[in-house]
Nucleic acid binder design. Structure first.
Length: 571
DNA sequence: GCCGTTTTCGGCCCGACTGTTTTCAGTCG
């Protein structure tokens, strides 16, 4: 799949055009096409071969020509030409906060700034400050931007951002009890994205200036990026930016809508509003000068003739059209979940005994669960030889007597070996209640074929973490998802949404493709200790971002129906 | 560069904050 490569090139052209002062509308056209292509699950090269590029939203004649050129020659000439007239490290330079395309162009033209090192040099020797429109403070801000390029530029996992956001919200509540009304996360965190660039908060208050002051002076603030009457922005522990927007009650809904984004969703929404004679901003929705809503977020959507759109869907991936037609999916919620199906115990590499762990799972409110400890060849994870597996099966039978009506299934996470065979024989698998098959080794050896082979096994219920990605460490293995989805639809094998924050695998876009292909999903935490169990909320957020309904998820089946769903019951 | 139940040309979301200004451009979200 060259989708990512093409998207990256189009994005680079957007950066280059911006640097060269092109009109923003052209730049935005490139960025939009880049985003749409990066979110496609279909192989762009196939679409190109079939002459269907024009079907891609945002891709017109000009961009079709670029894409065509890329697949024929491996590059886009315009990109090369622009690169030749630009600083060597343009993309790095543009990543510096407070150093935008206009300033970069000025520094390049007047001082020959080509690289981050050049930029540091002209800051230090004072030449940058002498340019027109520059001054001491602007240069100081650019210097800070350069310093934090490494730390502050990286995305932070939802697993890190969520508790931090809660801490900040608790602090604001404590400090400002009397004058603080509604308070909510916004931005990509509220949309449930797997990683976030910053944390956004919206607060309801009549005294914004005061709240902003408390916010920017809270412990952990290592830099104040801005502090006005309605908006404060800080760097927390030199690592993550947190923005707080403070608005009066009459604007809270509008501000929450605006600040939740995504940017692309808001742009589409405002286009529709404008066409219908409305104007939306963070203070409300207006018809002529008349405020027709803004206290609650729902009012914005209702004024435009659509139902309220769950934040997880707000990515301009068709949710606005669906909302206008009243056809939004009813997304899965945690309350729909009847079971946790992938939990480890001390029989392999989990922390707790079966009973300890099972009690924690039951406390989550589920009706049943499945232990899925590792199979024999997973040496690194204390995988179970067959005698120990049998021992575990007996122990689980005894446990069920103690814990009824809560039901504990005896499952396994069986390794898919390098040759595509499974790590236990069919005879052994047949004795188990539930089987997750996962690739844990030989990532580069034909992962698609091995996965497909596992799916064809009658005892395999679920493919665990199907792409093998680790968000902070590695790309997934190169699987052909469309083929896997085809086979999944044939065999009835489900794919996992592994909720562990560093996996979230399948991700939102792939999960959506699975549902569209008619493949069931299984949302699990892969918990190795009790505190992991709460990560199910990240998995559910990811599923919701993938337009997943409870009907699509086997964990939402009552136990009796779950058993009927399994392939073995149809053998 | 894209796109059309108001358009095949003329639009394209909207505002806060900052720093440099002398009325506003640049950056950011």
């Amino acid at each position: 799949m060259k989708n990512k490569k093409v998207a990256e090139m189009l994005d680079q052209i957007a950066d280059l055009l911006e640097f060269h002062g092109q009109v923003v509308f052209k730049i935005n056209a490139y960025r939009k096409a880049s985003r749409v292509i990066s979110e496609m699950t279909e192989d762009l090269e196939q679409v190109w071969k079939q002459g269907r590029l024009a079907e891609i939203p945002g891709v017109g004649k000009g961009l079709q020509a670029h894409i065509d050129e890329f697949f024929k020659t491996g590059d886009i000439r315009q990109r090369q030409e622009l690169l030749d007239q630009s600083p060597r490290e343009l993309f790095d330079l543009l990543a510096v906060q407070n150093f935008g395309p206009k300033t970069a162009a000025l520094a390049f033209r007047e001082l020959g700034v080509q690289s981050l090192a050049d930029l540091q040099q002209v800051i230090d020797d004072g030449r940058l400050a002498e340019l027109p429109g520059m001054g001491e403070k602007r240069v100081a801000n650019i210097r800070k931007g350069l310093q934090t390029l490494q730390t502050a530029g990286e995305r932070v996992s939802i697993g890190v951002a969520t508790p931090l956001c809660q801490t900040v919200m608790d602090y604001l509540r404590e400090q400002s009890e009397a004058q603080l009304g509604r308070l909510s996360p916004a931005g990509s965190l509220r949309r449930g994205k797997e990683s976030v660039h910053d944390i956004d908060l919206v607060a309801e208050t009549e005294n914004g200036a005061n709240l902003i002051q408390r916010f920017v002076s809270m412990p952990g603030v290592t830099r104040i990026l801005g502090a006005g009457d309605t908006k404060g922005s800080i760097l927390f522990n030199d690592r993550i930016q947190i923005d707080l927007r403070a608005v009066p009650p009459s604007s809270y809904g509008a501000a929450l809508q605006y600040f939740t984004g995504s940017k692309e969703h808001n742009v589409r929404l405002r286009e529709i509003a404008r066409a219908a004679g409305y104007k939306i901003n963070e203070y409300g929705i207006f018809q002529a000068e008349k405020n027709v809503g803004g206290r609650r977020e729902e009012e914005i959507y209702e004024a435009l003739g659509m139902s309220w759109i769950p934040p997880e869907l707000r990515e301009d991936r068709g949710e606005i059209e669906s909302a206008l037609q009243g056809k939004l999916p009813e997304l899965i919620t945690f309350e729909d979940m009847k079971a946790e199906l992938h939990v480890h115990s001390a029989y392999s590499d989990g922390q707790l005994t079966l009973e300890e762990m099972a009690r924690h799972v039951a406390d989550m409110g589920y009706d049943y669960m499945s232990f899925c400890d590792h199979s024999q060849s997973a040496r690194y994870a204390n995988g179970m030889e067959i005698p120990r597996l049998k021992e575990q099966m007996d122990a689980i039978r005894r446990l069920n007597k103690k814990m009824a009506p809560f039901t504990v299934l005896c499952g396994v996470e069986v390794d898919i070996r390098a040759d595509g065979s499974l790590d236990y024989s069919d005879e052994v698998l047949a004795e188990l209640d539930f089987v997750v098959a996962s690739i844990h080794s030989a990532f580069k050896t034909d992962p698609t074929e091995r996965t497909i082979q596992a799916m064809r096994n009658p005892y395999v219920d679920v493919i665990g973490h199907p792409t093998g990605r680790l968000i902070s460490r590695r790309e997934g293995f190169a699987i052909d998802l469309n083929r896997i989805l085809q086979v999944g639809a044939e065999t009835g094998t489900a794919l996992e949404i592994n909720s562990y924050w560093d996996r979230l695998d399948l991700g939102d876009i792939n999960a959506r493709a699975a549902v569209q292909a008619g493949v069931k999903l299984s949302i699990n935490t892969d918990a190795h200790s009790p505190e992991h169990l709460a990560m199910v909320h990240f998995g559910i957020a990811t599923a919701r971002r993938g337009w997943v309904r409870k009907e699509d998820v086997i964990n939402c089946l009552p136990l009796s129906r779950f058993k009927k769903w399994q392939k073995r019951s149809r053998l």
